[in-house]
């Protein structure tokens, strides 16, 4: 029992969120602090990229335009007419979650998405945006009536189904990234050295990019489902 206790304690310190300092009595976890650094870096990066836009784009502008066009085209496929409108929202989610998932490769950096605070914030934002857009597109009466379809007594089941979406959306990202970091910490705890490196390549780079893609695509799909 003592051995298991010791091992789990070490793993939790390795991959769980730890409060590092307090602001006015509110504890700030290290994952949230890294999230702030990533947001700041993204803002500075956007300022640098858009400072001198040229009609004939340079290398950096070309790459960013390719990414943005991909996001617009993907959104346009699921949500006709909403590509440009949802570009700031969907693009922010894709960039922030993509970089948050990849940042675990760096030493001493924990994934901000391995903390439920981050993923639930994103899940709730997507939930509110999808419900608001659905209300705007359908009108208030048709939006409320949409919950009572096809028959009236399915109303509670429809509401529970709608409320389960943000939970599964945020827990999927959290579970994948946190589970990956626990497995990396286990490998590093039992076999230090080069053994954890392929695990890091798989869980941080491949699973991280796939989960960022899935989170973004599901956000688009939820908005599209709520508005039709």
């Amino acid at each position: 029992m003592n051995y298991i206790h010791f091992a789990t304690f070490d793993i939790q310190a390795e991959s769980g969120a730890q409060p590092i300092f307090e602001i006015f009595g509110w504890p700030v976890n290290d994952t949230i602090f890294i999230g702030w650094i990533i947001s700041l870096g993204l803002v500075l990066f956007s300022i640098v990229v858009t400072r001198n836009l040229a009609l004939r784009p340079g290398r950096l502008q070309n790459a960013i335009e390719l990414l943005l066009e991909y996001i617009i085209d993907t959104t346009e496929g699921l949500l006709p007419g909403g590509g440009k409108k949802f570009l700031p929202f969907i693009g922010t989610i894709a960039l922030y979650i993509g970089i948050s998932n990849l940042v675990g490769v760096l030493p001493l950096a924990k994934n901000p998405t391995a903390d439920l605070n981050t993923t639930v914030a994103f899940g709730l934002t997507v939930f509110l945006v999808s419900q608001g857009y659905g209300m705007q597109q359908k009108g208030l009466w048709r939006y409320i009536k949409g919950f009572a379809e096809p028959v009236f007594f399915l109303l509670p089941i429809n509401i529970i189904g709608e409320l389960a979406k943000p939970i599964s959306h945020s827990f999927r990202l959290f579970g994948n990234i946190f589970g990956g970091s626990v497995i990396i910490a286990l490998a590093a705890f039992f076999v230090p050295g080069f053994i954890p490196v392929p695990f890091m390549a798989w869980f941080d780079i491949f699973i991280g990019l796939v989960q960022a893609l899935i989170f973004t695509m599901l956000a688009i799909a939820y908005i599209s489902v709520a508005s039709e």
Binding site: R172, N176, G179, L218
Partner: peptide, 15 residues
């Protein structure tokens, strides 16, 4: 990938 992500959610809840 999207279909697998949806199928995966029960496993993720268990995890």
């Amino acid at each position: 990938l999207i279909g697998q992500a949806v199928a995966e959610s029960t496993g993720i809840y268990a995890l």
